Amino acid sequence: MFGQAFAPAKVNLFLHVGAPGDDGYHPLSSLLVFADVGDRLSLAPADALEFRLSGPFAESLSGEGDNLVVRAAQALLGGLRGPRAPVGLMLDKALPVAAGLGGGSSDAGAALRLLRRAWAPELSDDALQAIAADLGADGAACLWGAPVLAEGRGEVLTPAPGLPVCPAVLINPGVPASTAGVYGRLDALGVFGDVAPPPMPEAFESVEELAGWLSLQRNDLEAAAIGIAPEIGDVLADLAAEPEVLLARMSGSGATCFALCPSDIEAEQLAERLESLRPDWWVRRCRLGGPWPEPA
Rank of each mutant, 00 (worst) to 15 (best):
A5G: 12
A137P: 06
V69N: 00
R278Y: 15
P27H: 07
F57L: 08
S54N: 13
G38R: 03
A140Q: 04
A160W: 01
G102Y: 01
S105M: 11
C286S: 07
P243A: 09
G154A: 09
I228S: 09
G289A: 14
V37H: 04
P56R: 01
A132K: 00
C257K: 01
F14K: 00
S251E: 11
G290N: 09
E209I: 07
R71C: 10
P198I: 00
D126Y: 00
V37C: 15
A267K: 09
A58E: 09
V283A: 10
D107M: 04
F6N: 07
S251Y: 04
D194V: 10
L15K: 01
A94V: 15
P20F: 08
A271F: 04
V87A: 13
A46G: 12
I171M: 11
C257T: 00
A224M: 13
S276Y: 06
G63N: 04
R249G: 03
W213F: 15
E244Y: 02
P56D: 02
G145N: 02
L123V: 14
P201R: 05
S29I: 01
L128A: 12
A168G: 02
A137G: 03
R287D: 09
A177L: 13
V182C: 13
D220P: 07
G24H: 05
V182W: 12
L15R: 00
S206K: 11
L214D: 10
E122D: 13
I265C: 09
L91Y: 01
V33N: 08
S251L: 10
W292I: 08
A7I: 05
E151P: 02
P8R: 01
R218W: 11
V165E: 15
A296Q: 11
H26V: 06
D22F: 05
V156Q: 12
V33E: 03
L246I: 13
L260T: 00
W281K: 06
A237M: 06
A259G: 05
L189K: 02
P199R: 04
L239R: 03
L143R: 00
P45I: 08
E122A: 15
G21D: 12
L163R: 03
S60V: 11
A248V: 12
L221S: 04
I131C: 05
I171Q: 08
P201K: 06
S29C: 15
V175E: 13
G190I: 10
A196H: 01
P56V: 07
V245K: 03
G82H: 02
V11R: 01
G184A: 15
A259S: 06
P86H: 08
V165Q: 15
R117Y: 11
D66V: 01
A229I: 10
L76P: 04
D39E: 11
P121F: 07
L214Q: 08
A133G: 09
